[in-house]
């Protein structure tokens, strides 16, 4: 039995800024396209929980962190470059 690989992603934002909204739309779109049913996206708004910024070494907003599978990968920006995001997250196209 082949273990199904799942992706756990975290998107760090600071309020509903246009950049953050774009980033969320982009990552949701890519995940639906390539990882349907195999991913989780957790959104962390640092305006509400600033203490979480230190743990994942967040300095830029928005930042997408791939927690699982390891190693941890980070992509900063509004994720508008699809190719770069897919390569960055190491998602293979089907």
């Amino acid at each position: 039995m082949v273990k199904e690989m799942t992706y756990e992603l975290r998107l760090y934002i600071a309020g509903q800024t246009p950049k953050s909204v774009t980033a969320l739309n982009n990552i949701t779109k890519y995940c639906e396209e390539f990882l349907k049913g195999k991913y989780k996206i957790e959104i962390i708004d640092l305006l509400e929980t600033p203490q979480l910024a230190e743990g994942d070494q967040i300095f830029a907003i928005p930042t997408l962190v791939r927690k699982v599978p390891e190693p941890i990968r980070k992509i900063i920006g509004d994720l508008s470059d699809k190719e770069k995001v897919l390569v960055g997250l190491n998602i293979r196209k089907v």
């Binding site: 910024a53 300095f59 830029a60 907003i61 930042t63 980070k74 900063i76 920006g77 994720l79 470059d81």
Partner: peptide
């Protein structure tokens, strides 16, 4: 604040609000 270029991809617009928040 650890900023390691090899671990980070940049795509599109961002700001350094993370540093401000911290």
């Amino acid at each position: 604040v650890r900023v390691e270029r090899s671990e980070i991809e940049e795509t599109g617009e961002y700001d350094l609000e993370g540093i401000f928040i911290r």
